[in-house]
Every structure is written in structure tokens, then in C-alpha cells.
Amino acid sequence: MIGAEVMGVIRLIQVTKRYGTTTALDGVDLHVAPGETLGLLGPNGAGKTTTLRLLAGMAAPTSGRVQVMGVDPWEHPERVRAQIGVVPDQGGLFDRLTVGENLRLFAALHGVRPAEVKEASAAAGLEGLAGRPVRGLSRGERQRVALARALLHQPRLLVLDEPTAGLDPAATLSFHQLLRGLKARGRTVVIASHDMAEVEALCDRVAILDRGRLVACDSPAALKSRYGRRTVRVTFASGAAAETAEWPLEDAAWVEAVTRRQAEGSLLAVDTHEASLAEVFLHTTGRELT
């Protein structure tokens, strides 16, 4: 645990994970600094969940090294799990128990005081839900209970697997607000998602995984600047209709076109178009994220 701040919260060194003949992760190197929010972006089967399972000590790497706060999670799962909170893609809640009973059970298993239950409930926005059976909750409410459960023991690292999959827009927004609050309090967060808007909105850095390989990892802005194309769109009148032409930002041709259309009096609008993470994904993997 000594030197964890210097070493980073997470360190994956040339990690490969195979299930039989299937390679889920292929030589992945990854580093996450304290307080950082990292998004793992990729389609189903890209290796996101496998990465999270390795971090939580739920699977052993076939080769390479995994370190969470300087500790190998497979060799010392109890030491890592004291520092890590996991929100799995399926909550794993006991649905015949109430929200409060679920949280009290997991608080007791973590050996934390009952007062922590209140704190975690408040952090996950569960006020008023304590007496309700889990089976009667909406998916958004269940995800918040799973988040509260993951926060009970005050983990330094929070790991979330597809946290908003299947949530309606309001529940998604509410969950994002909770995560921003946790990030503001300095918690290190890793989110696996195939929702590009979610990753872009919440994460400091994005790691793009494709077929088990890490194909890019940087801030959303840096990725877009490196792999995406900023363009200029010029809209002009052509007879009774409006037409649009588009050039790369660095291409001087658009300046000429704007000058000419302005002189003709046909210029209607000039817009710049930011590259999206979808374009970055397409550029780095050669296919679209569906």
C-alpha cells in the first residue's frame, strides 16, 4: 500500500486474460491516478467487464500484472476489497429484503458502523427508501442502492459496470449527478460503458477497448483532437434552396469560399463542427460503436 499515491490507484502492466481459446484482454497497459475518473469505452466483448473483474480480484490475469493501490487483487483480494467499491451491471441485491436491510447486511459484512449506512444512503440519494423492498424499486433506484452499498466502507476506488444501462433519461441524469458529486470529493472512479455521451460527460480520460486491445487512452478533448476531424461548414443560398459545403479546419479552401460567398451575398452561415467520440472510435477501431 506504501507509495500508492505515487504509483497510481490502478496499474495494469501488459495484462492478458484468456478464457479458453477466447482472448478477453490482450497486453493491456493502463494507469489511473488518484482522483481521476476513467471511462472504459467499447462494445460488448471488448474487455471492459473483464478489466473490472481483474481490478476487483474476481479473476486472475493469464499474464501480466494488475495492481490496485500497489496490491495484487488476485493474491490479496481482502486488502483490495477494503479499498474498492463495485457497482456490477446486475445489482446483486437481495430483492425480498428492504433497502435498509440490504445496506445493513453489507455494512455488517464490511464491519462498518450503522452510521455509515445513513451516510452512504444520503450520498446515493436514497432518503425515504430505506423501508421499501428492493423488488418494488425501479431500475434507477436499484442502481442507487447498489451505489450506496459500494460506498458503505468508504472505498478510495469506485468501479461501475454499465451503471446507467436501461435507465430512463431522468434516472441517468440523476445518477450522473451522484457520480459528479463523488468525483468532486476526490474519489477515483472507473466506469465501463458503451455510452459515449456518458463517458464524455463524466470522465477525465477515456480508454478505448476493442477486441481486448487498448487502442487509445487520453482525455476526450485530446482524443478528438488526435483522431477526430474539426471541420468548417459553410451554408449558402443556391437559388431558392440552401446548400452546405464542408472543409477540414486546417484547409484554407474554406476561407476562400466564405470570402467569395460573402462577396456574392449568398453566405448564410459558417459553423465549426467538433469531432465526436464516435468518430474517434471509428478512427481507432475501424468500426462504429453500436
Binding site: R81, P88, Q90, G91, G92, F106, H110
Partner: peptide
């Protein structure tokens, strides 16, 4: 229901 998995993420 993946409840066992959740249990084994605690010191149990």
C-alpha cells in the same frame, strides 16, 4: 441473481 458475487466482494 449475482447476489453471491456481491457477497464475495465483501470480506465474507
Amino acid at each position: 441473481k449475482r447476489q453471491l458475487e456481491a457477497l464475495f466482494l465483501t470480506p465474507v
